[in-house]
Design a protein around this nucleic acid. Structure first.
Lengths: 171, 171
DNA sequence: TCGCAAAATTGATCGGCGTTCAATTATTTT
DNA sequence: AAAATAATTGAACGCCGATCAATTTTGCGA
């Protein structure tokens, strides 16, 4: 996935590379979708690790470092990161609980940082504000990675989104 | 595309539905990627029309109406809208100029609204701020459409993003 | 109207994909 | 060693994007 990206990823190629047959892949994962979900879940775990390590070695400006971690991970693992969003389950299915837990684990890390950055009177907004700020950072990261920002003449997406986050926390 | 979504879209099915053979599709569009680009370009045009009409019948709170238009269009044309972002050209290619012009046309409409909402002293920031706010709205729309917000307990994404936009314009 | 060059259209063919499942091989248990 | 269980295989199916020689349709000058 990392190498070829979501569009050119194939279960057959996975089988070839690990020295098993295509049938074994299906015995283990059950379906193509489940294989993708397993890979994306693993990517989320790597992403959380990356974020945690990046925050460990951070003293001040922790929100800024969290944003940098978001952009850096997406840049270092373009294809694997994009696959998280390129893949969509059929409308009538939800991701497995283990997958949802991975998403919430990343969310929880960021909530703690946002809450710490908020004045005492606003700490109750932390969860709601974090959802919004994650979406904000994600939007900037998407436009940075897919060329939309380049098309519109934006060359400092990380700085732009940090401005947005600071405004929201300070408002 | 509208009907089956990017993942299940196929040039062969298009040929079947319009009563031509697969070969003719390739003679006209040249490649699968070019066909997708043509469809996505058309979706962008529909999107711009939708935005323009929505702003025509708007007196005050025009930025709010623009955001609503973003969300409404994405919801009304889920699959076609998602296809704009699901499709990625090979890394060494840029979208054709006509496609880029469609993107800029939408951008220009929003810049005018942002500029109008900005105090005189800040109108110079309009372009840069609009790029950032478009990314902000896009991020919220993505999380609303792909279930991330539902997973995290956010049920009013449009309200949240309007808060962000107002903060940025008023900051 | 006819003949013919240019343009448009076709669909068989190729290699590759997700998916299935009867057959086979390997492992464990008795 | 034999039987039972588990793991693995890969041919077969229908679909896909892509190609291109063969065919059909169109346009136009004589």
């Amino acid at each position: 996935m990392e190498e070829v990206g979501f569009a050119h990823f194939s279960a057959r190629e996975v089988a070839k590379r690990i020295g098993y047959s295509i049938g074994t892949i299906y015995n283990v994962f059950g379906s193509y979708d489940a294989l993708i979900l397993a890979i994306n879940g693993r990517t989320l775990a790597l992403w959380r690790d990356y974020l945690e390590r990046r925050l460990e070695q951070s003293q001040g400006g922790r929100l800024g470092h969290a944003i940098e971690a978001y952009f850096e991970f997406a840049a270092k693992h373009r294809h694997a990161w994009a696959a998280i969003y390129d893949f969509r389950l059929p409308d009538d299915l939800s991701p497995p609980e283990t997958y949802q837990a991975q998403v919430r684990a990343i969310f929880d890390i960021v909530v703690a940082e946002v809450r710490a950055a908020l004045p005492a009177t606003r700490k109750g907004e932390a969860a709601s504000l974090t959802r919004s700020l994650l979406a904000t950072v994600h939007g900037h990261c998407v436009f940075a990675m897919n060329g939309t920002f380049a098309m519109l003449g934006e060359h400092e997406p990380a700085r732009a989104v940090l401005d947005r986050v600071r405004e929201a926390v300070a408002s």
